[in-house]
Design a protein around this nucleic acid. Structure first.
Lengths: 203, 203
DNA sequence: TCCAAAATGTGATCTACATCACGTAGCTAC
DNA sequence: GTAGCTACGTGATGTAGATCACATTTTGGA
């Protein structure tokens, strides 16, 4: 199901990407960062591979190095709603299952081939007690996710589908060519037909 | 604008409410909790009072002891969208403005008379470095807010207005008698007319 | 106690979007 | 190559909810 990334180049790059990502928010010494990084495990996935499935026990969260994942919920085995397109430097998991130690009801899989760094919930908590700045970083990171979710909620209440579609492509221009249109519809919360009509009408 | 709560009874109660709230998630000694609590400032507000206004500088977050606040966004000075009804033991603020040190665009005011405990962003960060379990608590708390927001987003995409209305009243049964209906509509993201028709039709 | 403002109910009409139905193009697998 | 699957386009029709308009009730101040 999962194979470790073993090409040294990829690992070095991943480490640097994580370092720069954290450096934007928290100041860690090289030693502190090395200690933190030692708890992450690099992983490679193929397009379509499932990282978290319905009902799984969830112990890890994932930091995206390359590629694109999706975190999604499926209702009654019929309708799919995408909670997040996880692009490079985003974190993803089923945070409900992870924090409350319940079974997953959010799923995560790969839209493209992807490289990620994984860390267990226990290791993250441990690091946060060992390195204050790491604690600061993770509080900030969770708050950032909260704000993104809140912003999207507002957009949902305030804007129509067309505006939300343009907002999404503005945020992630790569998305248009990267992911099938019906997934974009599942993110916007509209039917694929409506989305199709949307960008074929005014062009 | 703001008056400190000076009735000793109220203060004792507030301290106990916060203690029990934190105890559910983190283990603090009495000394640690006293230290933490010393950074909180009790405040009393009257119904209708504004705690955070558009454009304010935001330095504090608020823990609700009694009463009900609302955190909301107003679009084009016309439409109001309620992000949160802050009931006892909930935390609220404009977390975007608080974390990023930008001006408030989320407002917070009082639906009823209310007692809260306020703490500054700086003090919270300081405490998190001083007391590991406090850091654990605040990471958990932010994650809880994130999950609530995510759940509401899913509900928005998946359910119609009636289902969301029943979901809300199920979560906060007190709300029906406590807040005007047009505020409930502003939380559900529908017009007050639609909400009115909703519960007058099937009764 | 009474008045003005806010909250609520209800009809008529309009519209964005869902749903169903069907057709085509393009991949992938053997 | 071709069978089958997935992605995508597009018409017809139904419906939840927005919006406008106005009546009625409730509430909070002076």
């Amino acid at each position: 199901m999962v194979s470790s990334a073993n090409h040294t180049n990829g690992q070095m790059e991943a480490k640097e990407i994580l370092r720069q990502h954290i450096a934007k928010t928290a100041l860690l010494t090289d030693q502190e960062f090395d200690h933190l990084f030692s708890h992450f495990k690099p992983m490679s996935f193929k397009k379509g591979q499932v990282i978290i499935d319905e009902g799984d026990q969830v112990d890890h969260e994932y930091f995206v190095i390359s590629g694109c994942l999706k975190a999604f919920y499926i209702n009654d085995e019929i309708k799919m709603y995408i909670l997040q397109f996880a692009m490079p430097t985003w974190w993803t998991s089923d945070y409900g299952a992870l924090y409350n130690q319940t079974r997953a009801n959010i799923r995560v899989d790969c839209i493209t081939d992807a490289e990620v760094l994984s860390i267990s919930n226990a290791d993250r908590e441990k690091i946060c007690t060992e390195i204050h700045q790491a604690g600061h970083f993770f509080r900030w990171r969770t708050n950032r996710g909260y704000l993104a979710s809140q912003k999207r909620l507002l957009s949902f209440m305030n804007n129509d589908t067309k505006a939300r579609y343009e907002e999404l492509l503005n945020l992630y221009p790569q998305l248009y060519n990267l992911v099938p249109k019906h997934l974009i519809a599942a993110y916007l919360g509209v039917s694929r037909e409506t989305l199709s009509r949307l960008y074929n009408s005014h062009k």
